[in-house]
Amino acid sequence: MIMSRQASGSRLLSWLPVTAMGVVAVADVVAGPGVGFLPLVSLGPAFAGLVGGWRRTALIGVLALVLCLALGLYDGLFEGRRGFTALISVVGVTGAGVAAAVMRSRREAELASVRSIAEVAQRVLLRPVPRTAGPLQAAVSYTSAVAEARIGGDLYEVVPSPHGVRVIVGDVQGKGLAAVETAAVVLGAFREAAHDESDLVGLGERLERSVARELEGEKFVTAVLAEIGSAGGAVFLNYGHPPPMVVRQDGTVGFPQPPAYALPLGLGVHGAEGPEPYRVDFEPGAQLLLYTDGVSEARDERGAFYPLADRAYLLKDPDAQLALEALREDLMRHAAGPPHDDAAMLLLRFHGHGKGKSVRDA
């Protein structure tokens, strides 16, 4: 719906220069030469410079010049200075419009280049998760609050390891490039430790040390770590992050809470105890959704939070990625547009099939 509105707005803007010149021409013919509408013909190339390329702007300028000449002859304005003044106005505005169109095109090209680089950086940082990992099917959705860059501070990863499938979803304090740099540190440490550490608590402690070395001041990262074995069941460590949502095969929904909330990553070195692991039943047919607060704290126009539990039924599609996309679209409708915070969602489905190799998206 948002895309269709943007397309409609673009079409309206593209017709604006011609419409403006048509209205001026009709008004000049109806009102006569005494009112002085003729110089307003220059609105055509002025609007064209704002919404079109330089070639189209120049073409609109030529049309405006011809229209101005015709109306000036019709009104008999070239017997004095008024007709020539109007022609000079059209020529000057056309030149300014062409210059503006050229500069805008250059800025758009630079922005497209920056966005392309950001997308490549995001694919390197947040590489595609495995479609299948051990007994799990996985799908991911990421929506950045920085619309022009399409990259932010939320993070996720799924790592099949000898100790089970290890998962992380986190949210870096702040936004922009500094948050992206912190997310890269967390993901790098997690990908290495997920293979080496036999215990989830040990993985969390190693991650805490790595993050504490890299972060400065009061920066922190909220995160939830999970470990799912082939026999079922999930073990969690929660570092001040929103609790996961479990959707049972019968449709019931739960948000398992940790025994005690721990400080986010980066703050644990101040002497506080780390999180306690807790186990949650995760049987075949169940779904596990890990997400960031950009989902749970998304508000509508009245300030109401997104009712995630009430929207669990949207995850019914047999294709995990399509199911997650349906939830994302509903979230965008609730927020009436792009989110004000990064919103990441990772959906895991327990199908209970063996321990096959993982397959990553192309």
Score class of each variant (00 low, 15 high):
residue 78 F to A: 05
residue 78 F to V: 10
residue 78 F to Y: 12
residue 79 E to I: 08
residue 79 E to G: 15
residue 80 G to A: 14
residue 80 G to K: 12
residue 80 G to V: 13
residue 80 G to Y: 11
residue 80 G to W: 11
residue 80 G to F: 12
residue 81 R to L: 15
residue 81 R to F: 15
residue 81 R to G: 15
residue 82 R to C: 01
residue 82 R to I: 07
residue 83 G to H: 02
residue 84 F to Y: 12
residue 84 F to W: 14
residue 85 T to W: 11
residue 85 T to F: 12
residue 86 A to P: 03
residue 86 A to G: 06
residue 86 A to Y: 07
residue 87 L to M: 15
residue 89 S to Y: 05
residue 89 S to L: 09
residue 89 S to I: 11
residue 90 V to I: 12
residue 91 V to P: 01
residue 92 G to R: 09
residue 92 G to C: 15
residue 93 V to E: 03
residue 94 T to M: 08
residue 97 G to K: 01
residue 97 G to L: 00
residue 98 V to D: 01
residue 98 V to R: 00
residue 99 A to G: 08
residue 101 A to L: 02
residue 101 A to R: 07
residue 101 A to I: 04
residue 102 V to N: 05
residue 102 V to T: 09
residue 102 V to H: 05
residue 102 V to P: 02
residue 103 M to A: 14
residue 103 M to P: 01
residue 104 R to T: 06
residue 105 S to L: 07
residue 106 R to C: 03
residue 107 R to E: 10
residue 107 R to T: 10
residue 107 R to D: 08
residue 108 E to L: 14
residue 108 E to V: 12
residue 109 A to N: 09
residue 109 A to W: 03
residue 110 E to T: 14
residue 110 E to H: 11
residue 110 E to P: 02
residue 111 L to V: 08
residue 111 L to R: 15
residue 111 L to I: 11
residue 112 A to Q: 11
residue 112 A to D: 10
residue 112 A to I: 09
residue 113 S to K: 11
residue 113 S to H: 10
residue 113 S to G: 15
residue 113 S to N: 10
residue 113 S to Q: 14
residue 114 V to S: 07
residue 115 R to A: 09
residue 115 R to S: 06
residue 115 R to Q: 13
residue 115 R to M: 05
residue 116 S to H: 10
residue 116 S to L: 11
residue 117 I to D: 13
residue 118 A to V: 02
residue 119 E to F: 00
residue 120 V to D: 10
residue 121 A to N: 06
residue 121 A to S: 12
residue 121 A to F: 06
residue 124 V to S: 09
residue 125 L to H: 09
residue 125 L to W: 08
residue 125 L to Y: 08
residue 128 P to S: 04
residue 129 V to E: 00
residue 129 V to A: 06
residue 129 V to Y: 00
residue 129 V to N: 03
residue 130 P to W: 06
residue 130 P to R: 05
residue 131 R to A: 13
residue 132 T to F: 05
residue 132 T to D: 02
residue 132 T to A: 01
residue 134 G to E: 07
residue 135 P to M: 05
residue 135 P to Q: 07
residue 136 L to R: 03
residue 137 Q to F: 03
residue 137 Q to L: 12
residue 137 Q to V: 08
residue 139 A to Y: 05
residue 139 A to L: 01
residue 140 V to Y: 06
residue 142 Y to G: 02
residue 142 Y to P: 06
residue 142 Y to F: 15
residue 143 T to K: 06
residue 143 T to H: 02
residue 146 V to E: 14
residue 146 V to R: 01
residue 147 A to H: 12
residue 149 A to K: 02
residue 150 R to Y: 04
residue 150 R to S: 13
residue 150 R to H: 14
residue 150 R to P: 06
residue 150 R to V: 01
residue 151 I to A: 04
residue 151 I to W: 03
residue 152 G to A: 09
residue 153 G to S: 13
residue 153 G to R: 04
residue 153 G to C: 10
residue 154 D to I: 07
residue 155 L to Y: 03
residue 155 L to A: 04
residue 156 Y to D: 00
residue 156 Y to S: 05
residue 157 E to R: 15
residue 157 E to F: 03
residue 157 E to Y: 04
residue 157 E to Q: 14
residue 159 V to A: 13
residue 161 S to W: 12
residue 162 P to G: 13
residue 162 P to K: 04
residue 162 P to M: 12
residue 163 H to M: 09
residue 163 H to K: 04
residue 163 H to V: 08
